[in-house]
């Protein structure tokens, strides 16, 4: 069965220099089990092909059912250097929620 990440999780994203931080929070324990298993750093890196040009780091926060991803080399230089419309990566959490997962 295919599920849409947006149906089981929400999140927020922002900037840390040229890296974007994408926090994904599952709505319930079952949802956290799914993202904990399927939302690997490799999977996220592949999802953001053409957007993220550096490595992806993943951090687990089971206490709030969240995963935090750091997407390096993603914001076109970051801060006022970036020519991107979304220079601070504010929309990247929504972009990750586009993912579909086979469970």
């Amino acid at each position: 069965m295919k599920i849409r990440l947006i149906d089981i999780a929400h999140g927020r994203s922002g900037d840390k220099g040229d890296a974007a931080n994408v926090g994904i929070i599952a709505y319930d324990d079952n949802g956290y089990e799914i993202i904990e298993k399927h939302l690997t750093a490799e999977r996220v890196k592949k999802h953001f092909e053409g957007i993220c040009f550096g490595k992806v780091e993943r951090f687990e926060m089971p206490n709030i059912r969240a995963l935090n991803f750091l997407l390096h080399n993603t914001l076109g230089g970051g801060g006022t250097v970036s020519l991107k419309h979304d220079a601070q990566g504010k929309t990247l959490a929504a972009a990750l929620l586009r993912m579909e997962i086979e469970v």
């Binding site: 927020r12 994203s13 931080n21 929070i25 709505y27 951090f59 059912r65």
Partner: peptide
């Protein structure tokens, strides 16, 4: 807890 969680993950690196 949802609105607070979203702020907790905002602009963080390694949460630990």
């Amino acid at each position: 807890t949802q609105t607070v969680s979203e702020q907790l993950v905002y602009e963080i690196g390694d949460p630990s």
